[in-house]
Amino acid sequence: MHSPVLILFDIDGTLTTGGPARAAFQLALEETYGTAGPIATHDFSGKTDPRITRELLTAAGRRPRDIEAGLPRFWTRYLCELEARIDGHPVTVLPGVHELIAALAAREDVHLGLVTGNVAGGARLKLLSARLWHHFPVGGFGSDHEVRNELPRVALDRASVHWGRAFRGSDAVIVGDTPRDVACGKAVGATTVAVATGRFTRTQLLDTEADRVLPDLADTTAAIEALTAPTPLNSPPHDT
């Protein structure tokens, strides 16, 4: 019997879209630092929340030591604002996601987890809103490390403890909608599956040399095949 595969999902643009996170982020920045920087035009895609925070405040001219000093208050305010707003402005679950996650969770040869730039508290609130949180017992989060490429290792370590067996990068599949998702998977030798449900097109995602590229997760059968089929060494990217 083959060892279970560990499938690690991104959240924003992969499982869900929308919700009040950006508004909560902006308000918390303004309350803590007096500015949200160029948040209206800033590219959040594939970045960790701590990196986004640092980029916005640096662009606004805040000094590194002042940024650091305000972070505890900022994260508390952000999570409070997100929790207060999310019931009235819930996230939208992308097509096919509920069906896919339920089907994967029912399989004995699959374990589920997260690799997301969200801080852990933000990930929890978003996925509670989406009715998905209970499917993901482990993860690597933006609150674990500012550098996204470090997060798969965190998730692998937590999975090893949770399921009582060692997980290596080659035992994992990283699923996301940005080139940074693909890059973090490649950093640990994981299989990478990119989905064109965010701001990047299938062509752009093929350029990342992801092992597989899907248009979306709406076709449960096709998605399961892409996520669980073995990937030969040095195989070319596959557009599914």
Rank of each mutant, 00 (worst) to 15 (best):
R51G: 04
M1D: 04
E99D: 15
L206I: 05
W163M: 05
A222M: 06
H42V: 00
G88R: 08
V97M: 12
G140N: 04
I101P: 12
R73D: 09
G70S: 10
T58M: 00
L128I: 13
R199P: 00
L128Y: 04
L8I: 02
H2D: 13
M1Y: 11
A130L: 10
T192N: 10
L217M: 06
T221W: 03
P38I: 02
R153M: 09
G189D: 13
A218V: 08
V93W: 10
D144W: 09
A105G: 06
P236K: 09
A28P: 04
P95Q: 10
E225I: 03
T48G: 11
A210V: 09
H162F: 14
D239W: 14
L82Q: 09
T16E: 01
T17Q: 09
R131S: 15
L104G: 07
L227F: 04
W75S: 02
T178A: 07
L205W: 07
G37L: 06
T220I: 15
G164W: 13
T231W: 06
G164L: 01
P179A: 00
A190E: 10
R77D: 03
R202Y: 01
V188I: 15
F44P: 00
V115H: 02
T228Q: 12
P95A: 11
R85T: 07
H98D: 14
T231K: 13
P137E: 01
G121P: 04
T191I: 12
V138K: 02
R153V: 01
V193R: 12
D109T: 10
L27I: 09
R85Q: 14
P90R: 13
S45Y: 01
R168Q: 12
A155P: 05
V213G: 00
L125T: 15
D211S: 04
R107H: 06
V5I: 13
P72R: 08
R73V: 05
W133Q: 12
F136Y: 07
L125A: 15
P179D: 02
A155Y: 07
G96C: 11
Q204D: 08
R51H: 11
D87L: 06
D157T: 13
A106P: 01
S143W: 05
I39E: 02
R22V: 14
A69T: 13
R158L: 07
G19H: 03
V119L: 01
H98C: 01
V161M: 10
I67V: 14
E55V: 05
T208D: 07
G61Y: 12
R180L: 14
A84D: 09
I39R: 06
Y78I: 03
T178W: 05
L151F: 10
D49M: 03
F25C: 04
M1F: 12
L27G: 00
R124T: 14
A229N: 07
K186L: 08
T58E: 01
A155R: 12
G198H: 05
F74Y: 14
